[in-house]
């Protein structure tokens, strides 16, 4: 769905994810994070990436198995998984 509401949701989820990124990786400037980037290029190892996913879920009050994020290639794909869960929850 590409309604105005879901675009807004995506923007909100992305901003939550950006906050989670800076919490786990304090050296990253949240303004410079692009949704097309991958977390590895921001210096996150696999454990950091998992923590970013978990923090984002906590803040959005979403409960998904972590394996739902297997195969996610960049921040955009991660946001998509979260937005889908958000739609499913609401």
């Amino acid at each position: 769905m590409n309604t105005g509401e879901s675009v807004l949701e995506k923007i909100n989820v992305f901003s939550v994810v950006k906050n989670a990124i800076t919490e786990v990786l304090p050296d990253v400037d949240s303004e410079s994070v692009d949704i097309e980037q991958n977390l590895k290029s921001l210096g996150a190892n696999s454990i950091d990436r998992t923590e970013i996913v978990m923090l984002s879920m906590e803040k959005l009050d979403i409960k998904l198995p972590l394996v739902s994020f297997g195969g996610v290639e960049n921040i955009k794909e991660m946001v998509d998984v979260l937005v889908d869960a958000f739609d499913g929850n609401s």
């Binding site: 696999s46 998992t50 972590l66 394996v67 297997g70 195969g71």
Partner: peptide
């Protein structure tokens, strides 16, 4: 059922280490 790491051929291994970490934590 999850396809994280495996030994699908003799004497060798294959795996998706990220998925394995996620599955381990779940």
């Amino acid at each position: 059922e999850v396809m994280d790491t495996c030994r699908p051929v003799a004497d060798s291994e294959a795996g998706d280490s990220d998925l394995s970490l996620l599955s381990y934590l779940d």
